[in-house]
Design a binder for these strands. Structure first.
Length: 504
RNA sequence: GGUCCUGUGGCCGAGUGGCUAGGCAGAGCUCUGCAAAAGCUUCUACAGCGGUUCGAAUCCGCUCGGGACCUCCA
């Protein structure tokens, strides 16, 4: 598998990735609803698609990455409480809705920075694209696939299904749902009378009195339905047809299904070629979500303030934790798993630092001193790209890197000589570690150890300690080491008589 | 009820039918004044029952368990 493959939810199989325009990729990812603080579950898609973004760029693509901010709010429960999520919270908190939106948007952005996610190329907001959404709805009505009912507009799913199903774009194409079954099994909800069919979904909702977020439209005062913003904004910034559409698995139906229907009516094309869905983060085997009351907010996660947390976990630990599993599998949260990730990250990062310190150009070796080891390393290094290309198997890439860590440490400790490997392989090792850990996985050192002054001070203290040790004054040397550790600085004696230190 | 996914060793997790990932934890050893780190060695697996096959964790069937979606949801 020498080229990039993605599992495409649309076709339910792995496919070779080929962009519509050579060298360029358009990617749309469903962003957050900023009606509340982001939680651990939200971290996954944004980290996952950050990896996709980084990897595509690493491969040389010029990517336009669009990720929306849903700030217009949606009804709590369709057909029942016609109330805007953001508006209801705003009433409770006595805040201007846009003030609330701003607050949570800022929090979201700061979390994204902590995770070291690269900002998208465009981050459009739903409220900033009301006009585009209205225009799109008008077109759907004009073409006969939507109808106005009591100031609201609904999409006519059955008509769409009948007409476009004949063209191979039936409703249910993405989620694998059979519309006929859906009609029989969909639960009866209250106040369905505005809709002609229970499958129909809202494009525009009539705003009830007291509903704070509202806009003037051809159908009266109201607000957009849940799905139209993504169709409007993806079309505007990426065109009628673009390469990748991403999001959480729970959005596959109905959100993405409806998005497809809307876009197909307007543009007569399947909007995206590759549909990528990340799986959920579970906690005790259950999806993390408001309805389950098991949400850990990111701020709680970092600080360790949630009751189920035994400690705080840093953004990089969380990022690494997410990378250690394949994005399409569920990932179960537990303190043990996070602690393991924390230690694993530390180990691989230390190995990476050691590797960077090796002077591999000192003696250039053409022939490996240890042919078996050379072959093993060379193989491991070449498998990395294969694994990454295989639907982004980050877990396997990390496993491969981990297998090389003992080799690096052994070189450092002198168990393996630099000349046991060819210089070409050592160079490749440096290159791959750097590419994957830094560029593609977006990991970074969270402990800023580049403080020159602190380093100088520690050098002095270490010299004093060394003197004490040489006089076998272990009481003093241990005191220095123990008290530094209490201050959060760990000294490590090296075999060559030197020392290293680490902030803990 | 409908659609789909899933069940791997103490924990987390990869896994293309044959070469039995990896991390964390545990045990032993080496190095060290001690410690930490590191290195080497090592113990626990493929839910159960059938079937296909020379051979199955991997394919098929059944049973049991877990989960997701069908309603806002990452």
């Amino acid at each position: 598998m020498s080229s990039l493959h993605f599992y495409n939810s649309l076709t339910r199989q792995k496919e070779t990735f080929k962009s519509l325009i050579p060298g360029r990729v358009g990617m749309y990812v469903c962003g957050p609803t900023v009606s509340g603080e982001s939680h651990l579950g939200h971290a996954r898609p944004f980290i996952t698609f950050d990896i996709v973004y980084r990897y595509l760029r690493h491969l040389g693509y010029q990517v336009r990455y669009v990720r929306n901010i849903t700030d217009a709010g949606h009804f709590e429960e369709e057909g029942r409480v016609s109330e805007d999520k953001i508006a209801s919270k705003a009433a409770l908190e006595k805040l201007e809705p846009m003030e609330l939106v701003q607050k949570y948007t800022n929090l979201f952005h700061s979390a994204m920075r902590e995770f070291n996610n690269i900002e998208p190329s465009i981050e459009p907001t739903a409220t900033g694209h009301i006009v585009e959404q209205i225009v799109m709805i008008e077109k759907i009505i004009a073409d006969g696939y939507a109808y106005v009912s009591n100031g609201s507009v609904y999409f006519d799913v059955e008509k769409y299904h009948k007409d476009f199903g004949a063209k191979g774009m039936q409703y249910g194409i993405l989620s694998g749902r059979i519309i006929e079954d859906q009609l029989e099994t969909t639960r009866d909800l209250d106040a369905q009378d505005e809709k002609r069919s229970k499958m129909d979904f809202a494009l525009w909702k009539n705003a009830a009195p007291g509903h704070i977020m509202r806009w003037q439209s051809p159908w009266g005062v109201g607000y957009p339905g849940w799905h139209i913003e993504c169709s409007a904004m993806s079309t505007k910034y990426l065109g009628d047809e673009f390469d990748i559409h991403g999001g959480g698995m729970d959005l596959q139906f109905p959100h993405h299904e409806c998005e497809i229907a809307q876009s197909v009516v307007c543009n007569h094309k399947m909007p995206a070629r590759y549909w990528l869905h990340n799986n959920m983060i579970t906690i005790n085997g259950r999806k993390m979500g408001k309805s389950y009351n098991n949400v850990i907010k990111l701020s709680e996660l970092f600080a360790g303030t949630h009751e189920i947390l035994t400690q705080g976990y840093s953004p990089m630990t969380v990022r690494f934790f997410i990378l250690q599993t394949h994005y399409r599998g569920t990932l179960d949260f537990s303190n043990e798993a996070l602690q393991a990730a924390e230690k694993g990250l530390r180990r691989i990062w230390e190995g990476f630092m050691q590797l960077n310190r090796l002077d591999i150009e000192g003696t250039v070796t053409i022939t490996a001193g240890d042919a078996d080891l050379e072959q093993k390393c060379f193989m491991l290094l070449n498998e990395l790209d294969e694994d990454m290309n295989d639907d982004l198997n980050t877990a396997k890439v990390l496993a491969g890197l981990f297998e090389l860590v003992p080799v690096i440490n052994s070189i450092k400790d002198g168990h393996i000589k630099l000349t046991d490997l060819t210089t070409a392989t050592l160079r490749l090792m440096k290159e791959k570690f750097n590419s994957y850990l830094v560029d593609i996985f977006g990991l970074r050192d969270e402990k800023k150890q580049d403080d020159q002054k602190l380093g100088a001070v520690l050098q002095l203290i270490a010299d004093i300690r060394k003197d004490a040790r040489s006089k076998k004054d272990y009481a003093t040397s241990d005191k220095i080491r123990d008290q530094l550790l209490e201050a959060g600085i760990q000294l490590k004696d090296e075999k060559d008589g030197g020392f290293s230190w680490e902030l803990v």
